[in-house]
Design a protein around this nucleic acid. Structure first.
Lengths: 202, 202, 202, 202
DNA sequence: CCTTAATCGAGACGGTACGTCGTGTCTTTAT
DNA sequence: ATAAAGACACGACGTACCGTCTCGATTAAGG
């Protein structure tokens, strides 16, 4: 009986709310996401949500962070280009419409809520598993003599995410195979070579 | 007397509305921009606005396009690096808080309005004056023998804008001098060299 | 089809709201009456109500005034006492539970809303049909020589209503036959005689 | 240190709560009085209050009964009219805005809570010190030969309170000197004479 | 020049969600 | 065992805009 469910509190209740928010996000997207709907879906009330988070943006950020996917291992295809394509494609797959709408929405509100901006910026600037993956791929390429030894600056490590997100947000559509190819072949591979070359010529 | 102002119509009225929208955008930002407020400021009524545009996003896009700044000439500093820094800084200056909030907001709504997505994507993908500027700068560098001859793909031509916008949107703050330097030195210059080198080795 | 009902405006809409309020009053009483419920029952929205009235009290007052019963003619029983009993009983019948709860509720809010107090006070102090009835009854009694000629002050004219309302509000129950008898025999008839006697002795 | 105050219980705690309720009543009035505020002011929690009283009305009634003023002695001015005026004025002074708002509020809730209605009705119908006062005043007048011997029914004994309360509740304002005069001269004195006269003529 | 159709301005309308407040219940912790 | 503290589910508050609509008033265009 649903009426007999003992009253939830603390962490358990919080989890239920974040789950509800996440489901709501997937179903209607950020723009149509409503605190009321989340409360209803979670079987709780608005006050409980407002007691914990300051508004839609913070709630959604929290729900997002609870649902960060575990980063899978990096494919080892034997080629720098293929490794990168696989990585970019993987990132692209995660940057689906919901994700981007959410990021755009949260960004929109971030301009009025510095702490949201801070949390979001931190999250986007340090996609730790991704930067690791980039280093691994580059190291392999160097080991294979496909690339001169090169130190990859942090900004370049996070570049794949930035490029994909930028692409998929400005297009409002999933990033196609061709675009991934273009980003790898026209931007990222040349950039790595450029970094290696400039370093070498010092 | 204000009551005696002859009733506006057609293009004149439209311009008044777009001006009002633009002013409103600058004063309160996209998130707080209201059709009602725009109508009030323009001294007209909501119906008149809804007759012309489908909603906030389309209205704001229209106002934006009326206020695209004229692209100033490209500085000629004598160095690729300095030319690029000047260009990036120029782009950064225009990517102020209002602009980014607007872009984020419109993006957010674009996911539900394909035609908005199309218009916005087109606008962001083809910042014509900018791509021209990039070509000019690169050509000069090649002419100075600072750079091997290189063909700059379209994706790389628009990259400055993407990088700056990405940076300023994810940070929610104006792009600092250091970040511009980092983008130029760690990304764009190496990329150009990489493109030149790979091309040469074909 | 209900969906095709043309949008109501002005007086028609107002009437629908007041009807809804009145029905709600009768069903759940003042204390449980909710603006939301009235709006729902009237098939309109809260804004429409708030645009017209300042709150629950004013809405209910308006509904009340639309539903003031027409005062029936005064019975002519041949006796002052019987005429008065009939009148008091008639007043008592109208002072039902709903009415009293409403009056008490509105009074409660009147202390914070002077304009409500004014409207309510005016209404309670000048129950015009009632004062007429009192005069008629007294005049008949004088004509029958049941009572010396007497001028009935306004305060005494409205006394029946005050007594009945007081009784029924303090008891929270309909005014019984015995109480009516007591009010007439112990208070009102003696009072009239006293007024006549004092006047005569001037 | 406030945190060190030994935990109160029983009568002491109850008194603290009723004091808090009374203070709250005086400061914000009945309509704005909340259980939460009373609990906060008393330094206790809502549960403790709900364990003892059923709701706002009962709490306030209890607080009221703890604060019934001691009835002062009756002035002896030498005239029936002046004695009555003094008495009425005294009653009027106690029927201040707070008191009336409270009575109206409690009345409003009494319609849904029979036991509240009972307690309130009992209290209003039997204002013992007042009825005594009336008797004293009448007896004195009879002794002075200002009034024929008269038996004052209970209903008439409580009438001063009813008249004043009625007046001050319907007006939402303190009862003026003029109104007191009118109640005495147009209602109460004639009524007493009427009662005496009718009795005499039996 | 005068009619006629269009569209402007003003704002009411039926909605939805907001963020807040208070209720009365329930749980936990600490006397 | 019960006080203190406060979280919880609920429901209503009054506000703000939404996007639609109705209603004159004004204006441009056509006979």
């Amino acid at each position: 009986m649903s009426g007999t469910r003992s009253r939830r509190r603390g962490a358990q209740l919080e989890q239920a709310i974040l789950d509800a928010a996440w489901d709501e996000l997937r179903e209607v997207g950020y723009a149509r996401l409503t605190i009321e709907a989340v409360a209803a879906r979670a079987g709780t009330s608005k006050s409980v949500i407002y007691r914990r988070w300051d508004g839609r943006a913070e709630l959604v950020l929290a729900a997002w962070f609870r649902n960060l996917p575990v980063e899978p291992v990096v494919a080892d295809t034997g080629t720098l280009r293929e490794d990168l394509r696989t990585l970019f494609a993987h990132v692209a797959r995660r940057a689906d419409s919901m994700m981007n709408e959410m990021v755009a929405g949260v960004m929109g509100e971030a301009f009025r809520h510095p702490e949201v901006a801070a949390v979001l910026g931190e999250r986007l600037a340090n996609p730790s598993p991704l930067t690791e993956a980039v280093r691994t791929i580059v190291d392999r390429a160097v080991a294979r003599d496909e690339l001169p030894p090169v130190e990859v600056p942090h900004r370049v490590q996070r570049l794949p995410l930035d490029l994909i997100r930028n692409e998929s947000m400005t297009c409002g559509a999933p990033v196609s195979e061709e675009v991934v190819a273009s980003l790898v072949d026209e931007v990222y591979v040349p950039l790595l070579h450029g970094l290696a070359g400039l370093r070498a010529s010092d």
